[in-house]
Design a protein around this nucleic acid. Structure first.
Lengths: 120, 120
DNA sequence: CATAATACCTAGAAGATCGAGGTATCCATG
DNA sequence: CATGGATACCTCGATCTTCTAGGTATTATG
């Protein structure tokens, strides 16, 4: 096999379990539709994250089914049909919990990774 | 509705994808066996994380199969049989990459969650 | 002897994400 | 008008990680 020396490796676009909370946070700022939510997260991450549509739409469906989001078809400023999502009150509560959870768990990982074996 | 107001909810013990890097980091400090690795991570996290054996042993197997770890049966100080793991040179490289990946991705999530809508 | 702690292992289920496909509309360009 | 790109949605199947829940064996303790 010629060429193709790249390592496909494990190249996750996002940390598993963080998509939901990022969606909720994005919608806390303003109601929005799927495509725009994805672009907003990507921009907000400084271009580090990529939101795949195959992850995004199932996540939105999941969150709505769970009662954290409500949605309706509307028209964008540019005249396109799109499904707009907004947080429900349950979603607002969930957001607070999940942000807290993220802080706790990511700080814990950081401690494990960073913990100095001993002082110099 | 009597009692039982607690929500079992989604209570992941760890952030998906972080177990491997925490194992590698733990073994960078000292060779160790599975059970001790789990306890070390739990201690290192300040008691926040719980390492389930059903996650731990498959992960160790995975990492060894991948070439990041080598292992051998040995006897602990307390006279017990245990499989001791240590990093291979591939494992040391992987550790550096995965720590870097973690820093990048967790910082990105942090930006998305924290991003101020606008200056005060 | 019963129990807890240490120490290992596995099978099956659940859940999230990804890759790859599909549809449709709008707009610019040639 | 034909083409292609961007916008906007959706879904299926595969993959991967973790959890639940079992199991074995040894050592130490009461």
């Amino acid at each position: 096999m010629p060429g193709k020396a790249s390592q496909p490796s494990s190249n996750p676009d996002i940390l598993q379990g963080t998509l939901d909370v990022m969606i909720l946070r994005t919608l806390q700022r303003a109601e929005s539709h799927g495509y725009a939510i994805a672009r907003a997260i990507e921009r907000g991450s400084g271009g580090v994250l990529t939101i795949e549509e195959g992850s995004l739409y199932p996540a939105l469906y999941r969150l709505q089914k769970r009662g954290d989001l409500a949605s309706e078809w509307r028209t964008t400023e540019t005249g396109r049909r799109a499904r707009f999502y907004k947080l429900t009150s349950a979603g607002r509560k969930r957001l607070v919990q999940e942000v807290d959870q993220w802080e706790r768990l990511s700080a814990a990982v950081q401690r494990v990774l960073g913990a100095q074996g001993a002082g110099a």
